[in-house]
C-alpha cells in the first residue's frame, strides 16, 4: 500500500506538472484540492483519466471523483479495492 501511495504522488506531480513540489511534500492525508495541494476541476478530470489508463477504473460521473480524490490515502484505498490492472 505504501508503494502505491508513493507511486500516486510521483504520478500526480508528473501528470499535473507540479514543478515545485516533491513526493516528500505531500502527506498521505493532505487534501489534494482546495487549500491543500490546490488542485481544481480540470485536475480532477486528469486524475479520472489516470485511474482509467493506469488502473483500469472507469468513472462516468466526475462527481464520483470528489470523494476518491480527497487525499492520497483515499485514492490509494479506492484504487486498491477497485483496480482491474
Amino acid at each position: 500500500m505504501s508503494n502505491l501511495k508513493e507511486e500516486l504522488k510521483t504520478k500526480i506531480i508528473e501528470q499535473l506538472n507540479l514543478e515545485d513540489i516533491t513526493v516528500g511534500d505531500i502527506a498521505d492525508d493532505d487534501s489534494l484540492f482546495g487549500d491543500g495541494l490546490g488542485l481544481d476541476s480540470i485536475d480532477a478530470l486528469e486524475l479520472i483519466v489516470m485511474l482509467d489508463k493506469d488502473y483500469g477504473i472507469k468513472l462516468s460521473d466526475p462527481k464520483e471523483g470528489r470523494k476518491i480524490f480527497e487525499s492520497i490515502e483515499t485514492m490509494a484505498n479506492y484504487i486498491a479495492s477497485h483496480r482491474t490492472k
Binding site: 480540470i42 486528469e46 483519466v49
Partner: peptide
C-alpha cells in the same frame, strides 16, 4: 480516442 486528457483541448 482513448485516455485523452482535457488540458490540451482547453
Amino acid at each position: 480516442e482513448e485516455f485523452l486528457t482535457p488540458t490540451a483541448f482547453i
